[in-house]
């Protein structure tokens, strides 16, 4: 069952402006820039672009409690055709090796398959950030076969290997549907050794606390998903919940906001900074604007205006985008503990 989006319920925190104002109003021990400075680190800059991450829009068949996009079935913002073409043109002219597709549920976009096929034809690695349940809808039943045929890496969200916790965060019945989807992907070779079809899972805490050790959780998840459901996967990524949009709203309503933010600030770890995704990723919004990450995109914090500002500008400067990364209090979410990124913890354990 889909939950209402903040936009739909006219929440005071529905707009990026209101979210930024609420985050800035919190009495934190230091700013993100001060934390970097105290650790002897300069402001963040991007070395080069290795990942072009595109957000195809806010439409989704789910509406999870923690969604930083405020995505849902009632959202209408999707990437126009002209922007899809601009993305493909920018990709073709560049040497960016990876196209990372996210949303919403990106597969709902009518140009999704075209985008994947053409990026693969250019020889690029393509990643799809998949909510799993989309593949169980009748109109998308052949999606797993399409993904396998195009060797798309699937990065799938599943907060817990236990049904109750997954459904609490993502909606009633999501766990069962996700397990069904994982079984189908496994049957096609996804997540199996030697097939070259990567199936990586993403987990984020079901509540106001930091993720556990990625390596320790991956061992548990592999054992438990195999034992309980016969499911295999390649890697588990832990992601810290970001105080943006619906998760921010949940923190506010449950009285957890201030302590959660203080926890993130207190857990600032300078060793996470080198692996932050904003160091090698550029994020394209559904409207074609450029952002330093998907979180900045949702907070409407565009890239430094001295550099390229839209995907069309990328045609001129394909991979060099060295302007400073735009930061704010939410950045503490990516630098807490073992760090957090679209590829999981930024500090890898042995």
């Amino acid at each position: 069952m889909a939950l209402p989006t903040l936009i739909n319920t006219r929440s005071p925190l529905a707009t990026p402006t209101a979210q930024r104002a609420r985050l800035e109003s919190l009495p934190l021990a230091r700013t993100f820039e001060e934390a970097l400075g105290d650790a002897g680190l300069a402001g963040l800059t991007r070395a080069s672009v290795r990942v072009l991450q595109i957000n195809l829009g806010k439409r989704c068949n789910q509406a999870c409690h923690h969604c930083h996009v405020d995505a849902g079935p009632d959202r209408t913002e999707v990437m126009p055709d002209a922007i899809v073409e601009a993305v493909l043109a920018a990709l073709e002219r560049s040497t960016i090796p990876t196209l990372d597709i996210t949303g919403g549920a990106p597969e709902l976009h009518p140009r999704f398959r075209d985008l994947v096929s053409r990026a693969k034809a250019m020889g690029r690695h393509v990643m799809d950030r998949c909510n799993l349940t989309i593949t169980t809808l009748p109109s998308y039943a052949d999606l797993p076969e399409f993904m396998a045929a195009h060797r798309v890496e699937i990065v799938a969200s599943l907060p817990s290997y236990a049904a109750a916790q997954t459904d609490r965060q993502r909606g009633e019945g999501v766990f069962e549907s996700s397990i069904e989807a994982l079984r189908r992907l496994n049957a096609l070779g996804y997540g199996r050794e030697g097939t070259g079809l990567p199936l990586n899972l993403v987990t984020n805490p079901v509540g106001a606390f930091l993720p556990a050790s990625q390596a320790a959780l991956e061992r548990d998840w592999k054992r438990e998903l195999k034992r309980r459901h016969g499911i295999e996967f390649n890697r588990l990524f832990t992601i810290t919940n970001m105080p943006i949009s619906r998760y921010l709203d949940w923190l506010e309503h449950t009285g957890n906001l201030e302590t959660y933010m203080q926890k993130l600030v207190q857990a600032f770890n300078p060793a996470t900074v080198e692996g932050l995704m904003c160091r090698d990723t550029i994020s394209v919004g559904w409207d074609g604007r450029l952002f330093d990450c998907d979180f900045n995109q949702m907070l409407d914090l565009p890239v430094d205006p001295r550099g390229p500002r839209s995907v069309a500008d990328l045609l001129m400067t394909p991979t060099r985008l060295v302007h400073p990364v735009v930061t704010g209090p939410h950045c503490f979410g990516c630098t807490a503990g073992a760090g957090s990124s679209c590829g999981g913890a930024t500090i890898r354990e042995a």
Binding site: Q165, P205, G207, F209, L210, P211, A212, S213, A216, L217
Partner: peptide
């Protein structure tokens, strides 16, 4: 919870 224990 932060060490990955479940409520159960």
């Amino acid at each position: 919870l932060e060490k990955g224990a479940t409520p159960e």
